[in-house]
């Protein structure tokens, strides 16, 4: 029952949703069925990517030494650390919600906040597969301009935000649950 105590809201929302779905399915409520369909398709997509994401995070946790991450992405690491963050983000499959646990794992290994934030935002805008999509529907010119404008802004704003929050001795939640 510790689960119930730790996540009362999650449980309440999940229970309400389950009831809503049961009622929708039994009465043939169209909106409810649409919600259910969307939920299921997202759920399946998540389930396809998640095993990999968490296995990779586990391997990363066991094999990569904190000192290595700290040296390349931590405090005192140079501007190159931002480049690593962008390149790493480019390989993320899925989007922000997949990037959150990875960003947190990076932070736990003492990557600096600016790098973590750059990684997060770039997981939104610099993913390789996503850019291919964008270019195929909106054209390469669109993608190039978007990259040229958004990338420097994201890196700059991440660095400034990190500075501002570090200055205020901000700490990330240590163990998300």
């Amino acid at each position: 029952m510790s689960f119930l105590k730790r996540h009362p809201w999650s449980f309440a929302i999940a229970a309400a949703f389950a009831v809503f779905m049961a009622v929708s399915l039994s009465t043939g409520f169209a909106f409810g069925q649409e919600v259910g369909g969307t939920f299921l398709s997202f759920f399946v997509q998540m389930c396809r990517v998640f095993p990999c994401v968490f296995v990779l995070i586990g391997l990363f946790d066991v094999w990569v030494k904190t000192e290595t991450v700290e040296a390349h992405l931590g405090h005192g690491s140079g501007p190159l650390s931002y480049l690593w963050a962008v390149l790493l983000a480019g390989t993320v499959v899925g989007g922000l919600h997949v990037a959150f646990p990875i960003a947190h794992a990076l932070h736990a290994k003492k990557a600096k906040l600016g790098v973590v934030l750059t990684f997060l935002s770039c997981a939104g805008i610099c993913r390789v597969p996503m850019t291919l999509f964008e270019a195929s529907f909106l054209g390469w010119r669109f993608s190039c301009i978007r990259f040229a404008v958004s990338l420097p802004l994201v890196v700059l704003s991440s660095a400034l935000l990190a500075r501002w929050f570090n200055h205020r001795q901000y700490h990330l939640p240590s163990d998300p649950d």
């Binding site: 689960f3 730790r6 996540h7 809201w9 999650s10 449980f11 929302i13 999940a14 949703f17 939920f39 997202f42 759920f43 998540m46 998640f50 968490f54 296995v55 995070i57 586990g58 391997l59 946790d61 066991v62 094999w63 919600h97 646990p101 794992a105 163990d175 998300p176 649950d177």
Partner: peptide
């Protein structure tokens, strides 16, 4: 590493479920 993976997943699974909903 698998234990780490499983622990992290079970910790965050409720939040993910809510997000999906």
């Amino acid at each position: 590493s698998l234990k780490v993976a499983l622990r992290r997943f079970t910790r965050i699974a409720p939040s993910f479920l809510v997000m999906l909903i």
